[in-house]
Design a protein around this nucleic acid. Structure first.
Length: 853
RNA sequence: GCCGGAGUGGCGGAAUCGGCAGACGCAGGGGACUUAAAAUCCCCCGGGAGGCAACUCCUGUACGGGUUCAAGUCCCGUCUCCGGCACCA
């Protein structure tokens, strides 16, 4: 018998699929489309286990759908613009393009070594002009529609690097790269008006029935809709309007002070000329220089200063002092709040600290709350007091009533606020899509004419790590105004790379098209994505931006799709035990050995301490390299283990023993099918009736595997079913008198079911059974429901809820007979004799229950 | 604090609609083959009690209650863990 030479087999079939164009061919007789998509990777040059898990899940589903006759879309590409390439350029003095392209090449090789059935003819890389050209084109469309705009906004600025930083790139108020101070700065930046879509993005979450609850909740929280009222307070002395947003109009009679965000442009103006001016200026300066993250820290003490001015409450004429304080955010609402210390914990703390009075306007029903007794704000439901005409009203009702009254009086209006901000897309970086506009002293902001797209990367730039490299290219920056022909300057900001990933799944549908972003008919054919698979870390960013882009594309008349991803699967992390040697150094799994119930270092046998199971990460060295695993066990084993060990959305702990278990299974498959192939050589063609036991087991297995992949995406139970089948079949095949027709039927059906998980070995064994077509393109086996049911059924018999015996009866046997038989069982008798039977229950083909007293 | 998810053998997990808890695999134990080892194959494997034994009984799905002939599954309450958000007025 041949050995299971996985390495030779896997190379052979990967090449065969490529030569045959097995997965990029148009297939006949399809029954509808299915689009499987994995989140495209950033080409770092090295595949990790998280990728392998992602692709193993997607490929198993894709192969299943292909065999089930679907017009399958299953593409792969690269999210190839971004900072790492630029940092590599600075470090190694290479061009980001070279670094990225070489990473793409190695990454693709590693993906091909996994035997994934992508249609590589749809390949895309976002760093290539044929892709980012359409980013630019669409940006201009958005600009035309007012969806893209430029405004001044506060951002994180690192003076040493001369660039903006994302919030997550600011660590303890310092730049993550140069450790220099980061300051808040107002800069002109490009934004996309995603807030225009806040309501639709929120409402449509309800239509995403195929998404995990957790992701939908995170998106809802992020959009952060709240109902409330705008109320117009006034400055007592100048009469200037002081608009505020509140969700608690029911507490309006309890307002004791007002607070402005320190960044609010009116703060300094208001303090001007009062005796507070110096104090206010000092406070604002301090607040402005503080890192936003620090200022919002949990344990941060509330601090503020009185502006020396007063506001008038439009509802009851109360005059209250105006403060500025660190806990009020400029970005939310109007940047000004009304403060009700009796009924808001933050306001309560602030009032206590600065000796401001408290006024109760809501009391628990039937009680009178006293200010002097309060040690915290009262925020529960209650009844209004000291609120003029609204006294005695339930506070929930008063929210609506008071808001209506404000509208009647023209001093406020009911309104809705969102936490969602417009999307800041400007980046002072090189390796991103260049924003296609030109600045002309005479004409202002002028879009680059469509026929001049794409605006490509200039190559005469220096990567110094200081500032935006694009600024160093004079040939790029200096240009002519497309409108008046005069001297002009190109935009040097590039787009956030999340733009690239917000529409790539549309592009796959028309990857070769050069007249537009995509062809309408291709989108109509394949969109939306039926199953999207990726990590939970994109729950907000990528998935929200993509939903926004999809709606924006629709509103530009380019598609009729409203939601991009029908079903979303968020795979769990890949984890591994951690190891430390005696001196506390992290060890790689490859550096240790487990023996005699202990764990030791491979090179010197010194003891190793085993730490927690944690997400695979370079910092703890607990990483297993997919390349090594494929070398040692093969891609089929790696895929098999990953899918078997855990359901896809749960955490997966990589264990070497588990991988060996998966490998053992494949070897058993190999040995069993090879022995069948040998037997069939002598006795072919097989004829005659198929063994009833194997026939029923096989139909049952087809049914289970079909549902486990197609309906539940529980690959682990599908594989368990295959293992059970193999255990039974191996026993049958090894016994005397195994029938050739049964052997052929069983082995051939099984290989179809195995293929989505372990495609190489399945193809090879299919060949060895004497076939010369591609198993990958064969139809999925059907099952006969009648044959998935056993003829005889074992039924447990309970007395008072405890099992006292079992009964083997034909399926659908008459109920009376079954009950009579059940009562005859010795052990059942032992528990019923001398007692009164008060109830007999028979669930057909399931269980018999007798209740006695 | 708020929101979401989860707690089942030594371990990963299964039980899909309220109907035999622990499928399948890993680890462990025993046996076969072998000069020996590896590989492979077979058997056992939640806890406790009784029996020579086939077997029988009790107990068990985080904890406390409840509904039901029957609960891992449904309801009420509690605890723990994981993830997200968090001064959003």
């Amino acid at each position: 018998m041949k050995d299971y030479d996985f390495s030779q087999i896997e190379n052979k079939w990967q090449k065969a699929w490529e030569d045959d164009k097995t997965f990029s061919r148009e297939l006949p007789d399809r029954r509808g489309k299915y689009y499987v998509l994995e989140m495209f990777p950033y080409p770092s040059g090295k595949l990790h286990m998280g990728h392998v898990r992602n692709y193993s899940i997607g490929d198993a589903l894709a192969r299943f759908k292909r065999m089930n006759g679907f017009d399958l879309m299953y593409p792969m590409g690269y999210d190839a613009l971004g900072l790492p390439a630029e940092n590599a350029a600075i470090k190694h003095q290479t061009h980001p393009r070279e670094w990225t392209e070489s990473c793409i090449a190695t990454m693709m090789d590693q993906q091909k070594a996994l035997g994934l059935s992508y249609d590589w003819s749809r390949f895309l890389a976002t760093c290539r002009p044929d892709y980012y050209r359409w980013n630019q084109w669409f940006f201009l469309k958005l600009l035309e529609k007012g969806q893209a705009y430029r405004r001044e906004a506060p951002i994180n600025w690192c003076g040493d690097c001369g660039t903006v930083l994302a919030n997550e790139q600011v660590i303890d108020g310092c730049c993550w790269r140069c450790d220099g101070p980061v300051v808040q700065k107002n800069l002109e930046q490009w934004f996309l008006r995603i807030t225009d879509y806040a309501e639709e993005l929120l409402a449509d979450i309800d239509t995403l029935t195929g998404w995990p609850e957790s992701v939908k909740t995170m998106q809802r929280n992020w959009i952060g809709k709240s109902h409330g009222a705008m109320v117009n307070f006034r400055d007592r002395d100048t009469g200037a309007p002081i608009p505020i947003f509140t969700t608690r109009p029911d507490t309006l009679y309890g307002v004791r002070f007002m607070v402005y965000a320190p960044e609010h442009p009116d703060v300094l103006k208001m303090a001007q000329g009062t005796d507070r001016e110096q104090e206010v200026r000092a406070f604002v300066d301090k607040a402005m220089n503080q890192d936003k993250y620090q200022r919002a820290a949990d344990d941060k003490e509330k601090e503020g200063v009185f502006l020396g001015r007063y506001a008038v409450n439009p509802l009851n004429g109360d005059e209250v002092p105006i403060y500025t304080a660190n806990f009020v955010l400029m970005e939310y609402g109007t940047g000004i709040i009304m403060a009700v210390p009796a009924h808001d914990q933050r306001d309560f703390e602030f009032a206590k600290k600065y000796g401001i009075g408290i006024k109760v306007v809501i009391s628990p029903p039937g009680e009178q709350l006293k200010e002097s007794d309060m040690d915290r704000a009262f925020v529960e439901r209650g009844t209004l007091v000291s609120s003029g005409p609204f006294d005695g009203m339930d506070n929930e009702e008063a929210k609506e009533k008071i808001a209506l009254y404000l509208e009647e009086q023209g001093i406020g209006s009911r309104t809705v606020q969102y936490k969602l901000r417009d999307w800041l897309i400007s980046r002072q970086r090189y390796w991103g899509t260049i924003i296609p506009v030109i600045y002309c002293a005479k004409c202002g902001i002028v879009p680059v004419p469509e026929d001049q797209l794409p605006v490509t990367f200039p190559d005469d730039v220096k990567f110094t790590g200081q500032g935006n490299p694009l600024l160093s290219s004079e040939s790029f920056v200096k240009t002519e105004c497309p409108s008046c022909g005069g001297p002009a300057r190109r935009e040097t900001d590039t787009m956030d790379t999340f733009i690239d990933s917000s529409w790539y799944y549309f592009r796959y549908c028309s990857a070769d098209y050069d007249k537009g972003m995509f062809r309408r008919e291709d989108i109509d054919r394949y969109m939306p994505v039926d199953q999207y698979i990726g990590g939970i870390e994109h729950a907000i960013l990528h998935l929200l931006y993509s939903r926004y882009f999809t709606k924006a594309l629709r509103d530009c008349g380019l598609t009729s799709v409203s939601e991009p991803f029908t079903n979303l699967l968020c795979q769990g992390m890949v984890t591994h035990e951690t190891y430390k040697d005696a001196t506390g150094n992290w060890l790689y799994p490859a550096e240790i050995v487990k023996k005699d119930g202990g764990v030791f270092k491979l090179d010197d046998d010194s003891p190793v301490s085993v730490g927690r199971v944690e997400k695979m990460s370079k910092s703890k060295n607990n990483v297993v390299d997919p390349g090594n695993i494929i070398g040692e066990y093969g891609a089929d084993t790696a895929r098999m283990f990953i899918l078997f060990a855990s359901p896809p959305e749960k955490q997966l702990e990589w264990t070497d023993a588990g991988a060996q278990g998966a490998h053992r299974f494949l070897k058993r498959v190999w040995n069993t099918v090879q022995s069948v192939a040998e037997k069939l050589q002598d006795t072919n063609p097989a004829s005659g009736e198929i063994d009833g036991g194997i026939l029923r087991l096989t139909h049952k297995t087809v049914k289970r595997v079909t549902a486990d992949i197609g309906e539940r995406m529980n690959f682990n139970t599908a594989i368990a079913a295959l293992m059970e089948w193999l255990n039974a079949f191996t026993a049958y095949a090894g016994a005397d008198g195994a029938d050739p027709a049964t052997l052929r039927y069983g082995a051939e059906t099984f290989l179809h079911l195995l293929l989505p998980f372990a495609p190489h070995i399945a193809e090879e064994l299919w060949r060895d059974l004497g076939h010369d077509d591609m198993l990958s393109l064969r139809p999925w086996p059907a099952f006969d429901p009648a044959l998935t049911l056993d003829e005889e059924i074992e039924i447990p018999v309970q007395v008072n809820g405890k099992i006292r015996g079992k009964l083997t009866v034909p399926r659908d046997a008459p109920q009376d007979g079954v009950l009579a038989q059940a009562l005859e069982i010795d052990n059942v008798r032992a528990h019923t004799d001398g007692k009164t039977i008060i109830k007999k229950i028979l669930v057909p083909n399931k269980i018999v229950t007798i209740v006695v007293k």
